[in-house]
């Protein structure tokens, strides 16, 4: 039973990551710096919403199959049963969300947005690669599908880090400022959540590859990795920044205001 609870929590962690970063990226829709890039970042948002749905659906299936004895929430509130992708996305509160903090901080400018995506998707690339070996075939299948999308996100965001890092004086400054602002949230990527118990996961190895890839891109772009290494963490355990509450207030408003309705 403990294993099942862990797997469900881990699926929710992955789903919440995808939903919240998808939500953030979708805020750009209609406001991008040029039409072509507006379409590009919206595509990425759409990929993430798709991933979130896959993970939530699988989590819901497991929850419904094993409803007894599973207290999957941190606050003691029971999950609404039967669970659906929407009950999981729309009817849990801040303390129950398990997304990484890096996904919920505000978009900032284009440099912040593309950098965050680069740092996150390089991590996802490694994480999902490990998940290909997951004993639950469904998890492995979702990972396989997601990798195709993530590899494009890596390429797209990396190109922007290079362009802005090595573009104009202003863009370099903005990209460096983005690094200073976001760096503190990268440490959390490699703290293995206690529910991430699948044997295929090796966070130290993920961090190792991530470090190499990120340093290589920063070096090519002439960008510096901050020397201070303080780590902001807690998201995976439900300890969030204040930003998440606003995201959920907006996202969940209809489901909360008109309970038990079909949409």
């Amino acid at each position: 039973m403990a294993t099942m609870k862990n797997e469900i929590d881990f699926l929710l962690h992955l789903a919440d990551n995808a939903l919240i970063i998808g939500h953030r990226n979708s805020e750009w829709c209609g406001h991008g710096p040029i039409l072509e890039q507006d379409i590009a970042i919206t595509n990425i948002a759409l990929d993430y919403i798709g991933q979130a749905r896959n993970f939530y659906q699988h989590a819901a299936e497991l929850i419904n199959r094993h409803p007894i004895g599973i207290d999957i929430t941190q606050t003691g509130n029971d999950i609404v049963l039967p669970a659906t992708e929407d009950s999981l996305a729309y009817l849990r509160d801040v303390r129950e969300f398990k997304n990484l903090l890096i996904t919920e901080i505000p978009n900032g400018d284009w440099a912040h947005t593309t950098l965050r995506l680069f740092l996150l998707s390089e991590f996802e690339m490694q994480l999902f690669t490990h998940l290909l070996q997951h004993p639950d075939a469904q998890v492995a299948a979702i990972a396989e599908k997601s990798i195709k999308e993530v590899s494009y996100h890596v390429k797209w965001s990396q190109d922007w880090v290079l362009r802005l890092g090595d573009g104009t004086e202003e863009s370099k400054q903005r990209m460096q400022a983005a690094i200073e602002a976001i760096w503190a949230y990268t440490g959390e990527l490699f703290i293995q959540p206690e529910y991430a118990t699948a044997a295929c996961l090796n966070y130290a190895a993920i961090q190792d590859v991530w470090n190499k890839k990120v340093s290589a891109v920063f070096e090519e772009a002439g960008l510096n990795i901050p020397s201070k290494t303080f780590i902001q963490k807690g998201g995976a355990e439900g300890m969030h920044t204040e930003h998440l509450g606003y995201i959920l207030a907006e996202m969940q408003y209809l489901q909360r205001a008109y309970p038990n309705s079909e949409w």
Binding site: L19, L46, I49, R53, I247, E250, L254, S261, W263
Partner: peptide, 19 residues
């Protein structure tokens, strides 16, 4: 309304549409 769409399916459809 993208950030307020009432279900994940609706959210995905709306994003695709605006895109």
């Amino acid at each position: 309304w993208i950030t307020r769409a009432p279900s994940l399916r609706r959210k995905a459809i709306l994003i695709a549409k605006v895109q």
